[in-house]
C-alpha cells in the first residue's frame, strides 16, 4: 500500500459517502444517473467475485464490502424508495447503458491477462468502470445546473482513479515486474473521460458558484 493508493481509496470512499449522504439525508437523487449507479453495481459485483476465495487483508475485504453494499443500496434507493425515486429524473437519464455492457464483455473475452472465468469478469469490470460514468456525464449536460453534492460526488469519483494512476506509476518504479497494461489503459481512459468535467468544475469552484 502506498500513499497514492490509500488517497485513491479514501477519495473513492468519500464519493460514495457523499452520494449516500445526499440520498439518505435530503432524500433526493436529483441530477444523479441511476444508469451509472447500475453500471457501478455490476462493476463491483464482477470485480469482487474473489472476495470469498482470496483474502488479501482486512482493509481490502472491508472496502470491498463497503463498495458492494453502497452501490447496491444506492440503486435500491433510487429504484424503490418512493421519496427518493420521485426525485429521479427518468426522462433525462436515457443513455443506453446496456449498450456499454456487451462491448466491454466482448473486449474482456478478447483482451485479458488470463483466460479464466474470474479473470475475464475482473477484466470486464475494468472496462465497464472506464465507461460507467458516461450516463452521468450525459445527464449532467442535460440538466445543466447541478447541486454541489452531486458535483462533489462526480469530482471525487473522477479523482480516485487519477490517484490510482499515480499509484501505478509509483509501483512500476518500486516493484519489479509490476506491469499491468490493461489496468493502466482502462484507468487512463476512465480518468480522461472526466477531463471536461474537471475543467468546468475548477472554473466554477474557483468562481465559488455551483457546477454548471
Amino acid at each position: 500500500m502506498n500513499i497514492f493508493r490509500l488517497a485513491g481509496d479514501m477519495t473513492h470512499l468519500a464519493s460514495v459517502l457523499v452520494l449516500l449522504l445526499k440520498i439518505h439525508t435530503i432524500k433526493s437523487c436529483a441530477g444523479v444517473s441511476l444508469r451509472t449507479q447500475e453500471l457501478y453495481a455490476i462493476v463491483f459485483a464482477t470485480r469482487y467475485l474473489d472476495i470469498f476465495t482470496s483474502f488479501v487483508s482486512v482493509y481490502n475485504t472491508f472496502m470491498k464490502l463497503v463498495f458492494l453494499g453502497s452501490s447496491f443500496s444506492i440503486v435500491w434507493y433510487m429504484r424503490y424508495h418512493k421519496a427518493v425515486h420521485r426525485t429521479y429524473d427518468r426522462e433525462q437519464d436515457t443513455f443506453r447503458h446496456w449498450f456499454l455492457v456487451l462491448p466491454c464483455l466482448v473486449l474482456a473475452l478478447l483482451i485479458h491477462e488470463k483466460f479464466t472465468f474470474l479473470e475475464v469478469l475482473w477484466t470486464f469490470s475494468l472496462y465497464l468502470e472506464a465507461v460507467a460514468i458516461l450516463p452521468q456525464l450525459v445527464l449532467l449536460q442535460r440538466t445543466r445546473n447541478i447541486d454541489n453534492l452531486t458535483g462533489q460526488y462526480i469530482f471525487l469519483l473522477g479523482g480516485y482513479r487519477g490517484l490510482y494512476i499515480l499509484n501505478w506509476i509509483y509501483r512500476y518504479f518500486t516493484e519489479p515486474h509490476f506491469v499491468h497494461w490493461i489496468t493502466w489503459i482502462a484507468g487512463l481512459v476512465q480518468t480522461l473521460l472526466y477531463a471536461d468535467f474537471f475543467y468546468y468544475y475548477f472554473l466554477r469552484f474557483i468562481g465559488g458558484r455551483g457546477v454548471e
Partner: peptide, 10 residues
Amino acid sequence: NKNDVTKDEL
C-alpha cells in the same frame, strides 16, 4: 505470483 499483486488493489 504477479497476478496476486494485481488483485491486491480495489
